[in-house]
Amino acid sequence: MAVLKLSLFSNNFPDFFIIDHNGLVDIAKMETDDDRRNATFQWTGSSLNFGQKGMLVRAVAPPGFCLHIATFDNFRIHSKFFTGITDPQVKARVIEESTYILQAAEIDPNQASFRSVKFPDRFIRHRGFELFAEPVATPDELQSACFRIAQPLHPAEF
């Protein structure tokens, strides 16, 4: 199976990419090589076709971090080290809370939205340049849950 590396930029803020900022996930402009590294992910689904389930995992060191819905932090998206979890029940829960369905964005069906598997009424979206998993209904909310898939901003190391 091919490894699908990508970067994702905001549909309504095209200069802003999803980025892991030391454990919290935001959208931001890419200004440094470290920014480009932290905005490069691997999609674990079998393809980038709509309807596929997968996780968004860091594609550069340090490995083993995924975009996780932190229910304890108002459904904020955190970067979570999941590969080192030894308790199988905890690991299964974290994976479930970090798995999304790639689907056509309602506001722009040529672009992508990521709907939570665990919380099917919630989509990854940005609010105040921070990422959350939230329900979306209004045009502004739908726009903030729409992302464009781009080539990886940094060559992956592993």
Rank of each mutant, 00 (worst) to 15 (best):
A2Q: 15
A2R: 15
A2G: 12
A2V: 13
V3G: 12
L6M: 15
L8Q: 08
N11F: 10
N12P: 02
F13C: 11
D15R: 14
F17S: 04
I19L: 10
I19D: 01
N22R: 14
D26I: 07
D26Y: 12
D26C: 06
I27N: 03
A28H: 13
A28Y: 12
K29M: 06
K29G: 00
T32F: 07
D34R: 15
R37M: 03
Q42Y: 10
Q42T: 10
W43V: 05
S46P: 07
S47Q: 11
S47M: 09
S47C: 07
L48D: 13
N49S: 12
N49T: 11
N49A: 11
F50S: 14
G51W: 13
L56Q: 01
L56T: 01
A59C: 05
V60C: 14
P62Q: 10
G64Q: 04
G64S: 02
G64E: 02
I69L: 09
F72N: 13
F75Y: 14
R76W: 03
F82I: 11
T83K: 14
G84E: 04
G84F: 04
I85E: 06
T86K: 15
P88C: 03
A92N: 13
E96D: 12
S98I: 03
T99C: 06
T99I: 04
Y100V: 02
Y100M: 06
I101G: 07
Q103Y: 09
A104W: 07
P109W: 10
N110D: 04
S116R: 01
S116M: 02
V117R: 10
D121A: 06
D121S: 08
F123A: 01
H126I: 00
R127K: 11
G128A: 04
E130C: 03
L131P: 00
E134C: 08
P135C: 09
T138R: 14
D140M: 13
E141G: 06
S144W: 01
C146V: 03
P152K: 09
L153E: 05
H154W: 14
H154N: 12
A156S: 13
E157I: 11
